[in-house]
C-alpha cells in the first residue's frame, strides 16, 4: 500500500511541473502589460519601468519561471500585482469555501447517484428504472447555475428556509455553515449525481448477470448481502473512474455556482484575477486546483485498488 502511494506521488511530480509550465507560459501570453494597468495612463516612463522591474517583468521568461518555481517550492506563490496581498494567503483564505462546497456537493452526488443507480439496476425496465433514467437525463441537461437560481428563488427568497447569499464558515457555526452550503451544493451536485447514477446502473446491471452472483444466491445469501456486498463491490470499480472525473467537474462548477449565491470563493478570486490580468494570482489558483485534483485522483486510485484486487501491485 505504502509503495503504491509513493509510486503515485512520484508520478505526480512531472504532472505538476507540466501544469506549472503550461499556466506560466499561458499567462505570459496575456495581451497587454500588467504594468500599464498598474501605472495608469498618467504614469511616466520611469514609473512604468520601475513597476516592470518590481514585478520582474523585465526579466526573460525562463528566468521568471525559475524564480517562480524556486519560491513556489517553498510555498510562496508570489504577490498579487494589484495589492500587496500574498497569493498563497488569498488562495488559502478562499480555498476552504470552495473546497467545502465541492465536498458537500460530491457527497450529495455520490449518495443520490448510488441510490438511484442501484434502485434502477435491480429492476431494469421498471417504473423506478424509468424515473431514475429520466432524472439522470434531465440532470445532465440542467445547468448548475440555473438550477441554483431556481432553488434560491424557491427555498431562499420564497420560503426563506435558507439564506439566499453568503457563506458561513464551519468554525463560526456548523448549522449556519450547513444552511449556507446546502442550496449551492445541491445545485452543484445534481448533474454529477446523474452521471454517477448512469454509471452505477449500467455497471450493476452487468454485474448482476454474473455467475458469482448466481452462485452467491445459490448459497442462500440474502438479497441484501448479495446486492450490497457481492455485486456492489464489483460494480463500483468502473464507477470510481467516473467519480474521480466528476470531482474535477464539481470543482470547476463550484466557480460558477459561487457566483449565483454570492459566495466569496476561488471563483470570484479567479474571475477578478482574469479581469485584472493578475498573473501570479491565476497561477496560484490553477496550481491549487490541480493539487486538489491530484489528491482526489490519488484517493480514487487507492479506492480502486481496494475494490479491484487484480489492480493491486503484487
Amino acid at each position: 500500500m505504502l509503495r503504491l502511494i509513493v509510486q503515485r506521488v512520484l508520478a505526480l511530480v512531472p504532472l505538476l511541473f507540466l501544469v506549472s509550465v503550461l499556466t506560466f507560459s499561458f499567462t505570459s501570453l496575456l495581451p497587454g502589460d500588467p504594468a500599464d494597468l498598474i501605472v495608469g495612463q498618467q504614469g511616466t516612463p520611469e514609473q512604468y519601468a520601475l513597476v516592470r522591474h518590481r514585478l520582474g517583468l523585465d526579466q526573460p521568461l525562463v528566468e521568471r519561471y525559475a524564480h517562480w518555481v524556486e519560491h513556489a517550492a517553498r510555498g510562496d506563490l508570489g504577490t498579487s500585482f494589484f495589492n500587496s496581498v500574498k497569493v498563497s494567503d488569498a488562495v488559502m483564505q478562499r480555498l476552504p469555501v470552495t473546497a467545502s462546497l465541492t465536498a458537500v456537493a460530491a457527497l450529495i452526488a455520490i449518495a443520490v447517484g448510488l441510490a438511484a443507480g442501484i434502485a434502477a439496476a435491480l429492476r431494469p425496465g421498471s417504473a423506478v428504472d424509468r424515473i431514475a433514467t429520466l432524472g439522470a437525463t434531465f440532470g445532465q441537461a440542467i445547468p448548475n447555475f440555473w438550477f441554483g437560481l431556481l432553488l434560491a428563488a424557491i427555498f431562499a427568497v420564497g420560503l426563506r428556509w435558507f439564506p439566499a447569499t453568503g457563506f458561513t464558515p464551519i468554525s463560526t457555526s456548523v448549522g449556519g455553515w450547513l444552511a449556507s452550503v446546502a442550496l449551492p451544493a445541491i445545485a452543484l451536485g445534481f448533474a454529477s449525481s446523474a452521471a454517477i447514477a448512469r454509471q452505477v446502473r449500467s455497471a450493476m446491471v452487468g454485474v448482476l448477470q454474473q455467475d458469482y452472483i448466481r452462485a452467491a444466491r445459490a448459497q442462500g445469501l440474502s438479497s441484501r448481502r448479495v446486492i450490497f456486498r457481492h455485486a456492489l463491490k464489483n460494480a463500483l470499480v468502473p464507477v470510481v473512474a467516473v467519480l474521480s472525473f466528476q470531482i474535477t467537474v464539481l470543482l470547476g462548477g463550484a466557480l460558477i455556482v459561487e457566483q449565483v449565491f454570492a459566495i466569496n470563493g476561488l471563483g470570484t478570486l479567479a474571475i477578478t484575477a482574469v479581469r485584472q490580468q493578475d498573473i501570479p494570482m491565476i497561477q496560484g489558483i490553477v496550481l491549487v486546483m490541480v493539487a486538489i485534483v491530484v489528491v482526489v485522483q490519488l484517493a480514487t486510485d487507492l479506492l480502486y485498488g481496494f475494490l479491484n484486487p487484480k489492480a493491486r501491485p503484487s
Partner: peptide, 18 residues
C-alpha cells in the same frame, strides 16, 4: 493529461484571460 487535470472551466477561464 495535464490539461485534463485542471477543471475544464478553469482552462477556459485562463484561455479567455489571454
Amino acid at each position: 493529461e495535464a490539461i485534463m487535470s485542471i477543471p475544464g472551466i478553469m482552462v477556459a477561464i485562463v484561455i479567455i484571460a489571454i
